[in-house]
Design a protein around this nucleic acid. Structure first.
Length: 567
DNA sequence: GCCGTTTTCGGCCCGACTGTTTTCAGTCG
């Protein structure tokens, strides 16, 4: 898969064009980059079928450039741009307040190529002498430099969600506030989050802004106006607060939930209908046709309501026009967790604790799937321990009402594609979860074959965290996912959507692709501690972002039907 | 550079805030 490489180069070209103020060409490249990174199909395959130019935003010229990248691994046009502007654009752009125009200006006038150059010129007070830049800008650059160096960019949804909810609750306590909602990429449940957007309804904006900018966790106020303020928290996260009247809150929520790409699509639809869409509503001339609720806004544009998780301009707008949006799976549909760990291996909780928690979560069943076999790092169980655990589960199932504990196991798929336990043991299990725990990185072909082989084992029910990626830590294994999906369909093997905040594996795009192959999936937490059962909402969000419906997810089934599937 | 139910040219989403300016450009989302 060279999709990532292609989209990165297209983005870089857009960066360079942006400095030259070539706005429309910039947008064209950005759009093409977004199209490529959202693809769930290998771009080389699309190219082989001669369908590049059918992709949105990809025309004759960009198609030729993509072909050059695929054929030669690089792009002449891109190399030329790099030579013209030999600078660390991404780093410079990460400095709050510096944009493409200023970066170009600084490079041409002062030769600033990276953060060190920038710091030197700011300290020598060369920057404020440039036209259009002043003393305040120079000070701000120095202030923001250290932060830009430390800042790792986006953070995991699972880390940010709790904090955002706490802030929402604090603001909700104000009497003068009528409503508070979290918008932005958090509401879309994107796997990583760049900043937090909070929207409120109030008639006293000044007071709310005053409260917001003085909250205890605020480190620095970046901007403060009557309708919008931005702060940086002690932990480095940026938070925006915006204030609206009730009559426009729906359109504001649409606008600030994004994604930006979908908003642009919606605006185009508005224009086609002779209307105008902005954060204050849908307008015909001066008249506001809609704005109070999101449903109104979508309806005014002739669209069905689009769930936030779908708003990525990946076909949802067209589906909303034609009544073809999926009925997404919901958190309440989930009846159990099929991948958990206990103190029998590397987990921190007892089986009894997990079972009790599962009852509180309203589950019908929970599967205990501790590690086994040749996996010393995860303190795997030997055969004697497996027997011991099964006895304990039998006893607990007698003792505890309101939940069924399933006997499961997580086996390692060895280098020959075999589970590292004999079939005679697997046969005794209600559920076998199999996964590659590869520290080495085999080539695509052999790793794919290993997984395909494991799927053919009749006792293997679920392939856990299929791509092995860890967000911002480790890339996905090189896998031919199309073949994996095909085999999953052929053998009836389930694919996992792992809910750990740094895994979310399969990820949203993969889920969507797997659905094309009619695969069934299980949303599991892989919990190693009691509180991690709560990660389920992240996995469900990933399923929803991948357009999954209740029927696609097996752990929405009642126990009897689930057991039939697992047979 | 892309695109077309006003199609092969002339458009391309829109508003708030800031700083450096006297009317606006750049940045951000």
């Amino acid at each position: 898969m060279k999709n990532q490489k292609v989209s990165t180069i297209l983005h870089r070209i857009a960066d360079y064009l942006e400095m030259d103020g070539n706005d429309f060409r910039t947008k064209a490249y950005r759009r093409a980059a977004h199209t490529v990174e959202s693809l769930s199909t290998d771009i080389e395959e699309i190219r082989a079928q001669g369908r590049l130019q059918q992709l949105p935003g990809i025309g004759k010229h960009i198609a030729i450039k993509i072909e050059e990248i695929l054929d030669t691994g690089s792009l002449q046009y891109y190399e030329e741009l790099k030579q013209e502007f030999p600078l660390d654009y991404e780093a410079l752009l990460s400095v709050e307040g510096l944009g493409p125009k200023t970066i170009k200006h600084l490079y041409q006038e002062l030769g600033v190529k990276n953060l060190d150059d920038l710091e030197r010129e700011a300290k020598r007070h060369h920057i404020h002498r440039l036209k259009g830049l002043g003393v305040k800008t120079e000070q701000k650059i120095l202030q923001n430099l250290d932060f830009a160096r430390k800042n790792t960019g986006r953070r995991l949804l699972g880390q940010v969600l709790t904090m955002a909810r706490e802030m929402k609750q604090e603001i909700e306590k104000l009497q003068i506030v009528q409503q508070v909602e979290i918008a932005g990429s958090i509401r879309r449940r994107k796997e990583t989050v760049g900043d937090v957007d909070i929207l409120t309804i109030t008639n006293q904006p000044q007071e709310v802004m005053e409260f917001f900018t003085n909250m205890e966790r605020v480190d620095e106020v970046i901007a403060k106006g009557p309708s919008k303020s931005t702060v940086r928290l002690v932990d480095g996260m940026e938070v925006d607060l915006r204030v609206f009247q009730k009559a426009v809150f729906g359109s504001a929520m649409v606008y600030f939930t994004g994604s930006k790409e979908m908003n642009i699509e919606l605006r185009k639809i508005a224009i086609q209908k002779g209307l105008k869409l902005n954060e204050y509503g849908v307008f015909q001339g001066e008249d506001q046709l809609a704005g109070q609720t999101e449903e109104d806004v979508f309806r005014a544009l002739g669209l069905d309501y689009i769930e936030p998780e779908l708003r990525e301009n990946r076909g949802e707008v067209e589906a909303a026009q034609t009544g073809k949006l999926p009925q997404l799976v919901q958190g309440l549909d989930i009846r159990g967790d099929l991948h958990t760990h206990t103190t029998w291996s590397d987990g921190k909780s007892e089986i009894r604790e997990l079972a009790t928690s599962a009852i509180e979560m309203g589950y019908e069943y929970i599967a205990i799937t501790d590690h086994s076999g040749n996996l010393p790092v995860a303190s795997a169980m030997d055969e004697e321990q497996i027997q011991g655990q099964m006895k304990e589960i039998d006893i607990l199932n007698q003792e505890i009402d309101g939940i069924i504990i399933l006997k499961g196991i997580e086996v390692n798929i060895n280098s020959l594609g075999k589970p590292d336990l004999p079939d005679s043991i697997l046969e005794e299990m209600d559920l076998v979860v199999a996964a590659v725990h590869a520290s080495q990185r085999p080539d695509t072909e052999s790793l794919t074959n290993r997984i395909l082989e494991a799927m053919e084992n009749e006792y293997v029910d679920i392939i856990a965290h299929p791509t092995g990626r860890k967000i911002q830590e480790r890339l996905a294994h090189n896998l031919n996912l199309e073949r994996v999906f095909q085999m999953a369909n052929d053998t009836g093997t389930l694919l996992e959507i792992n809910s750990q905040p740094n895994r979310l594996d399969l990820k949203d795009n993969h889920v969507k692709k797997a659905l094309d192959y009619s695969c069934h999936m299980a949303v599991n937490t892989d919990a190693h501690r009691l509180d991690q059962l709560g990660y389920m909402e992240l996995g469900v969000a990933t399923a929803r972002r991948g357009w999954a419906q209740k029927k696609d997810i097996v752990n929405t089934l009642p126990l009897k039907k689930l057991l039939k599937v697992l047979k």
